[in-house]
Design a protein around this nucleic acid. Structure first.
Lengths: 187, 187
DNA sequence: ACAATTTTAGGACGGCCGTCCTAGAGTGCT
DNA sequence: AGCACTCTAGGACGGCCGTCCTAAAATTGT
């Protein structure tokens, strides 16, 4: 029982630290200190640091998929479902202010490292993009549903980047409002 | 003569490498190999790695200021001047696809490192923001010139992030077009 | 031409990194 | 109770990092 738990805890802690400190800047010592296990014990659960990164990405993919499904079940209209996506920025504003968007900052880092896991990390973006595309299709945007999805993705990325750079929430609130007004055009 | 030149070359190479590989991931060995000088010789020109980072940021600030002044002189209307800003995305599309926006990715990295130079790195953003604000003021947007400037900054950041994540130029071209259409609203 | 100063090369240093190894502790099954 | 297996702790290992030191080379000023 605790076998799986320990492994899951490692991934959970690594997920947080990779987000807050970046992948490179997070060492095994950091993770093991936080988890409370010895440094050497790591390699019983994972082959390498890259292996942990892969596990973290898989975890994020699963969590994202679950979140999107929940929104689909909880909200009635496609418009309200899309607003759930926009609302992440408000919900996570405190962390975004400090560390930016978890998805965007990881892909940015991996791109610069020319890291092979960039492809997998991008799948989180793709999950959002595909899901948003379906909502826009449902709103009758047959021609440019994919374009609108990527546009919304880009807008939210920009908001997170600026809010993090200036460590400021007011620009985040204002831009989210602008984004919601933009969305009204497609209702 | 060569005294200043060597120092400048170091900063120039460091600037490129910090952009392409990230600050942390760029080592003294990387820079010295590229410049063609010995590793030990570095500390005659700079006190530390952070010292080089500061020099790189100062260089970027100077270059940005020069670029903005050039646009001001070359283009007649404020609208055309703003379009110069948007057009950076097209001009630098190849590099943006690979490494993202130099300003945004550096601030993102420094924010995660909790690095003291984040404040200075942000000044590049502020240069753009203040400059854009004045153009929007000139376009008669007295009430929300600053908001429009930050909005444009955020939009371009988002485009760079998505283009880099998906290593794709088509989304960049399309989003720039959307951005230009948006700007027409304020002419 | 010579002394003073600046610039350079190259190695040495501690430190932290990811990784690996080994011995012991814990656990479950018969 | 005894055995097999899983899990854990802690240290050892090469390697690279940023930094520092020293001595020689190049440059400058007079």
């Amino acid at each position: 029982m605790s076998k799986l738990a320990t492994k899951d805890i490692i991934v959970e802690i690594a997920d947080q630290l990779f987000y807050q400190q970046g992948y490179q800047h997070t060492s095994f010592a950091d993770i093991s200190n936080e988890v409370g296990i010895s440094r050497g014990n790591f390699y019983h659960h994972f082959k390498s640091k890259d292996d942990i990164l892969d596990a973290v990405i898989q975890r994020r993919l699963a969590n994202t998929e679950k979140m999107l499904n929940d929104w689909q079940e909880d909200e009635q209209t496609s418009l309200e479902q899309i607003r759930c996506f926009i609302n992440i920025l408000i919900m996570n504003r405190a962390k975004i202010k400090l560390y930016g968007c978890p998805v965007g900052t990881l892909t940015t880092e991996l791109a610069k490292l020319d890291h092979p896991s960039l492809i997998d990390a991008n799948k989180v973006f793709s999950l959002f993009a595909d899901w948003l595309e379906k909502r826009f299709l449902d709103l009758g945007q047959k021609e440019n549903a994919k374009e609108l999805a990527l546009h919304l993705l880009a807008r939210s990325q920009g908001i997170a980047t600026i809010a993090s750079a200036f460590q400021d929430e007011t620009v985040l609130y204002r831009e989210v409002e602008t984004l919601n007004e933009w969305l009204t055009t497609y209702s």
